[in-house]
Design a binder for these strands. Structure first.
Length: 593
RNA sequence: GGAGGCGUGGUGCAGCGGCCUAGCAUACCUCCCUGUCAAGGAGGAGAUCGCGGGUUCGAAUCCCGUCGCUUCCGCCA
């Protein structure tokens, strides 16, 4: 080793010993005859001092040091003179008096500051990711990620789970996200798909009798990015045999409640995690992943609206819709402009309009005043629980739309109106998702979760007759407004799986071609099984208090799915194309790199 | 596919029709300096204002297009 100690671990008790350190020059403070520099390695920072008593060669070298030079220092650990300790530094009681100093590698002036936490253009950070990764923020995040994953591995191993790797080169199947595909050289014209998740493989591992499987699994989906979505991401993929929903929920809940205090200073708001049905989540929060750190619950005004003298309310209810409302405490003073912004947001989310009621101390202002009498207005104010100073918002529409619109407003306003504490994690379960949803564009039913999700037993009879009313044995775990994971109890009988495929519009021969392996496996004694797949990136993001998952991924991609450091994606050579039997047709307007 | 934001010395920002011969901070270079820890002092160098086109007597500034980063909608079994 080129070093005997780590910089950040030296303490007063090491005073007197001679150490060899190696690391990066963090900062240099040159007083002429006296030079200080901070030496940094992964463990932290220690001050090195070099004065006239040091060998001339050492003094000479010290004066040439620049930020990010890689150096090796040999010297004695000394207690700092009285009054010169630095209480802000864990190593602040001591310093290292350099006797030998070697530059192992000089450095260009860094393209951005390594030694302070400043904002840097995202493209520059990604282009020089190895420099960004030197900074404390990403060092801290990736170490947290390591500890999180290690905790998970240990926790599940102790509970009888076996970690098994599944292939990255698999078969493309319909349904779900767009696949990343890999051309086959040995089978020209054929392609592998990279897994969107190891879903079918882990189910087959249950058929294989492993009973409890997990994997820290990389997944790829060729869809557009978000702050919490990267083209490749990592899931804790797990599956269990002979379980029902309750077993999976209990396992994950005990994992998370143990994990959070073990690796972070975060606090879980409520244990056991609150449970909401999907219907309840939509009705009360207008979202299937509500942020439960704040209230702003939705109110159902439909019964009142049915009798309203305001035509829009009455018509919405008559058409089978609903009128839903939300109380914004202390917002009665919102300006015309602010209310217009809320209206724009509502319209963007599908509302036809937004009706507001502002209650100040002595009056009630609302565009409704002209349409409804005082009695009805009082009833609305009462139903919305408006106190003086509050603003009420209402949306009349199809019940689902009305809820989702207010849910969008809730997500936007919650953090603005509440001092949100990101040290709090508000975990919750959302249960009883619908099994299917109607895809109007394609004119067919599609799986809300995935096609292997089991229907609730009592809803199974309606699978063909009324697909929309069938609920699934599916569950999501959410936290602070993010979907942290989703899972289900799976179908394990061939005939049910075949019925499911048929409802999804898959012909029997198509199902056999694409899912024959699974259907066949179900004939060989497939046990009842189920599982879940929490997203590691989102989980660590929440534990780290980061606003996006790039901050917890070593080498993330941009919103356009590019790796700015490697320059990927990139064209490949003619020779490679030929070997793969591929002809590339670049469309007009496309931009090859 | 769509909507918004951003793009100005290495970095972070200001300037938003003429006062810009582009300002500030920091970094960088040279010199001075023995107790600093965001060291200090003196001096210096460094910018086709993302790119292309247009409007104008005049464009960093206005318009159009385009590229990059980002947030959101669509999309994400």
């Amino acid at each position: 080793m080129l070093k005997t100690h780590n910089c950040g671990e030296l303490r007063a008790c090491d005073a007197g010993s001679t150490v060899t350190l190696a690391g990066w020059v963090h900062r240099r403070r040159d007083h002429g005859g006296l030079i200080f520099f901070d030496l940094r390695d992964r463990s932290g920072i220690v001050q090195v001092v070099c004065d006239r008593s040091a060998p001339p060669q050492t003094q000479e070298t010290a004066s040439t040091l620049r930020p990010e030079y890689v150096v090796q220092v040999r010297g004695r650990v000394l207690r700092r003179p009285q009054g010169l300790e630095n209480p802000d530094l864990p190593t602040g009681e001591i310093e290292v008096a350099a006797s030998e100093l070697t530059v192992l590698n000089p450095s260009r002036t860094p393209v951005f500051y390594i030694n302070e936490e400043s904002e840097v253009d995202e493209a520059l950070r990604l282009r020089y990711r190895y420099l960004d990764l030197r900074r404390p923020r990403l060092q801290r995040n990736l170490i947290l990620r390591h500890r999180t994953v290690k905790f998970i591995r240990d926790f599940l191993s102790e509970r009888g789970f076996i970690e098994i790797e599944t292939p990255m080169l698999i078969r493309s199947t319909p349904e779900g996200a767009r696949d990343y595909v890999v051309p086959s050289r040995l089978h020209p014209g054929c392609f592998y798909a990279l897994p969107q998740s190891p879903q079918q493989l882990k189910q087959l591992l249950m058929v294989a009798g492993f009973e409890r499987y997990f994997q820290i699994a990389r997944c790829m989906r060729d869809e557009d990015q978000r702050a919490d979505r990267q083209p490749e991401f990592t899931q804790l993929d797990l599956e269990m045999s002979f379980v029902d929903r309750e077993d999976v929920l209990e396992l994950v809940e005990s994992l998370f409640t143990a994990l959070v205090p073990a690796v972070s200073d975060r606090r879980i708001l409520q244990v056991p995690f609150p449970r909401l049905s999907y219907q309840e989540a939509i009705a009360r929060y207008g979202s299937d992943k509500p942020d439960l750190r704040f209230g702003l619950e939705l109110v159902d005004l439909t019964p009142l609206a049915a009798e309203s003298s305001f035509q829009i309310f009455r018509q919405a209810v008559a058409a089978g819709g609903a009128v839903k409302g939300m109380r914004l405490p202390g917002c009665a003073g919102y300006s015309r402009k602010q209310i217009q912004e809320l209206t724009d947001l509502a319209v963007k989310n599908g509302a036809k309009g937004l009706v507001w009621i502002a209650r100040s101390t002595d009056e009630i202002r609302s565009p409704l005043s002209r349409a409804v009498g005082e009695g009805e207005m009082q009833a609305l104010v009462h139903a919305l629980a408006l106190e003086p100073g509050d603003l009420g918002l209402t949306v009349a529409d199809d019940a689902r739309v009305a809820s989702l619109v207010l849910g969008a407003l809730r997500s936007e306003l919650g953090p603005r109106l509440t001092a949100l504490d990101d040290r709090v994690l508000a975990f919750a379960w959302v249960l009883d998702f619908p099994l299917l949803e109607w895809n109007a564009e394609e004119g067919r039913w599609q799986a809300v979760h995935h096609p292997f999700t089991a229907p609730l037993d009592e809803d199974l009879p309606y699978l063909e007759a009324d697909p929309g009313r069938v609920r699934a044995k599916a569950y999501d775990i959410v936290a602070n407004g993010y979907e942290v994971g989703g899972g289900s109890i799976r179908i394990h009988r061939r005939e049910v799986q075949e019925r499911m495929f048929r409802v999804l519009g898959l012909r029997d021969d198509e199902a056999r071609t694409q899912f024959g392996h699974l259907l066949e496996a179900f004939e060989f004694g497939a046990p009842p099984h189920g599982g879940i797949a929490p997203g590691i990136d989102r989980l660590v993001m929440l534990l780290a208090g980061e606003p996006n998952i790039r901050e917890v991924i070593a080498f993330p991609k941009t919103q356009r799915a590019a790796d700015l450091m490697l320059g990927a994606p990139a064209p490949i050579s003619e020779r490679q194309l030929e070997e793969l039997g591929l002809l590339v047709r670049v469309e007009k307007g496309a931009n090859p790199a």
